[in-house]
Design a protein around this nucleic acid. Structure first.
Lengths: 343, 343
DNA sequence: GTTAGCACTCGGCCGACAAGAGTGCTAAGT
DNA sequence: ACTTAGCACTCTTGTCGGCCGAGTGCTAAC
């Protein structure tokens, strides 16, 4: 075999991985034979297992336990062994049913998809909403809230709505506010949000802003409104992992919950997926986050035209059911792509 | 003593409760004396403890363990024993610093307060945002998203923004959309959201809607936009409770996380607080939610003028530091009230 | 190359045992 | 009548040894 494993080794490795995925317990030599109907004696299987351990695919918790797949084994499994199936009918229907925008706010759409992913996969769902910065500006509105507070509402082409409360240093008349609104909407039309940010900075430094006080105010106001529009990540179904036996240990559970609170770390991983379209799989330490030890992540990107909008996926234990989850993630990404598509 | 406990019993009960709050371990007779400098022998204390157990204030896990306060004891403690202090300087500053609206969206304000509550109290923070239904309508905008999708943005007097994606059955011109917007804004001006809902239903059944198709469309659209604006609850700092020894048991931890996922149950409790202004304390089963066993909740209301807007609070173990947390919750509620106040 | 046989290893489980914490009771002291 | 010293009793916790079973690695025979 081109990858250095003969057929029998591959079969046995596959059997071990699949058994381990379903039981979460170390697999012994005789368990494999009985559960997979191989016509080999346990002794032979043991020999093969010893080789596989030598090669780094298996490890044993202690001498007299069975063997457990390593990350390398899972990687080999998803790359070479796994026949990725389809999504079965019921699940397809469920995904389709729960991928709907009607009656939700934009944020709710992504949260809903994340919830759906978690409940279909039985692991955690994760959705990174489209980066607001790469969205195209559509409209800005300022609504006076009383006092010197103003509510700025910013809408992008894709329908994302951001609102910010900004505090002014001085009073401003409703009339002036309207003028500022009109001015900004005209000036910023058709730019992406990050272009908008740049433009505002340039304008503020430009000649005109120095003489036109109202313009300067408008720019300052919009800058505050755009300040710190971070990426949003929706992680749902954390309670699902509570039932997994590998996290029965309280300490491990704590680690995971802490890790999921640190969304910025996850963001860097998800960002890297933006550049790699289609399904991506991170097994354990492959994501280079030590908070992800024991966890795997399957992601895919959703797009609009040729723009990659965002990433969604499932986070589960390394022994997750890759064969089932990969198609679910893939299908969901396609659904979300289609859903966001404007005719 | 009017409540049936003489001074010494009260002192001892207080000592037990406070020791238990800080150690989470059953308190023995000699521990009390050494830690509180009482000039009584352990034997005497034991007699008193036996009486307190008789009265239902204490219980012992088993014969030879110390004693543990019951819910009744905590209730007595907060009602009669506890001298509620102030908030100390550092915490007051922290609360003040983190109660700010600037640069956040409205939702972010409440989430921020919830996070602050959790980090100051070291338990979980909970904030129920003002019920959108009781807010006053300010403005509605429809933004075409392409296809037959329309983004409806609804803004209330207090600055809450709700957005919904609605799907139309037929195409509609931008011009008509603008007319509908103007019409609705005029018609609904100054009503509360729940009045708005009622008004729309009445109008739809009225004479005019039958002849004026555009009007009918406008009503239908706004109805969808208003559909199902639920109450929002922000629970933050769940990871805090992971460190508490009483939840070291995995099963209990699961129960709590599951309970916090069911926000609707909590909502009923919080709703009942809306009617009782000021600080409310629910000890264990007092909230009549069995998911709250082992947990206590301290809440207070934040108001605007004479309207109670919402509820915030802290959820922690029944043995939580009431003396510290009660003033924190109280002070935070006042801060939020002041913050939302429009000059 | 495969397999039966066998000695070996190691974790999990039980029961025994000792230590420690805390109680309740009794009897003596104030 | 209240307080307290003394003491026997109870119950948990931790530790130690032994047994069992699962699973391995090795060797020798097929």
């Amino acid at each position: 075999m081109e990858d250095g494993l003969n057929l029998r080794s591959r079969q046995i490795l596959e059997a071990i991985i699949e058994d381990y995925i379903s039981t979460a317990e170390p697999i012994g030599s005789s368990a494999i034979r009985s559960r997979h109907g191989l016509s080999l004696s346990p002794a032979t299987i043991r020999n093969v297992m010893a080789d596989l351990e030598e090669l780094g695919f298996l490890s044993s918790p202690h001498t007299s336990a069975g063997r457990v797949p390593t990350e390398k084994a899972y990687r080999f499994y998803v790359d070479s062994l796994l026949a990725v199936g389809g999504v079965d009918r019921g699940e397809r229907e469920e995904i389709r049913r729960r991928c709907t925008m009607a009656g939700k706010d934009v944020e709710g759409v992504f949260r809903g998809v994340s919830q759906m992913l978690s409940s279909v996969s039985h692991y955690m769902g994760i959705v990174a909403a489209p980066s607001f910065n790469s969205n195209v500006f559509r409209q800005i509105e300022f609504i006076p809230l009383g006092g010197r507070r103003i509510l700025a509402i910013l809408v992008s082409q894709s329908g994302s709505v951001q609102n910010r409360i900004v505090e002014l240093e001085r009073d401003i008349s409703a009339d002036d506010l309207q003028k500022m609104t009109n001015y900004l909407n005209e000036m910023l039309h058709g730019l992406t949000i990050s272009q908008v940010k740049g433009k505002i900075v340039r304008e503020m430094e430009g000649e005109r802003a120095r003489y036109d006080e109202m313009l300067a105010n408008a720019l300052r106001l919009s800058q505050q409104a755009l300040d710190d529009v971070g990426e949003e990540i929706f992680i749902e179904g954390q309670a699902n992992i509570l039932d997994l036996p590998e996290f029965a240990d309280v300490q491990k559970m704590k680690d995971i919950f802490r890790a999921m609170e640190q969304k910025s770390q996850l963001l860097t991983v998800l960002d890297s997926c933006l550049k790699a379209p289609g399904v991506n799989i991170f097994i354990g330490s492959e994501s280079h986050l030590n908070s992800m030890s024991g966890l795997s992540m399957i992601t895919s990107t959703y797009v609009s035209g040729k723009n990659t909008l965002g990433v969604l996926g499932v986070i589960g234990p390394t022994r997750m059911g890759y064969g089932k989850v990969i198609p679910i993630v893939d299908y969901t990404a396609r659904m979300l792509t289609r859903m966001l598509h404007v005719d």
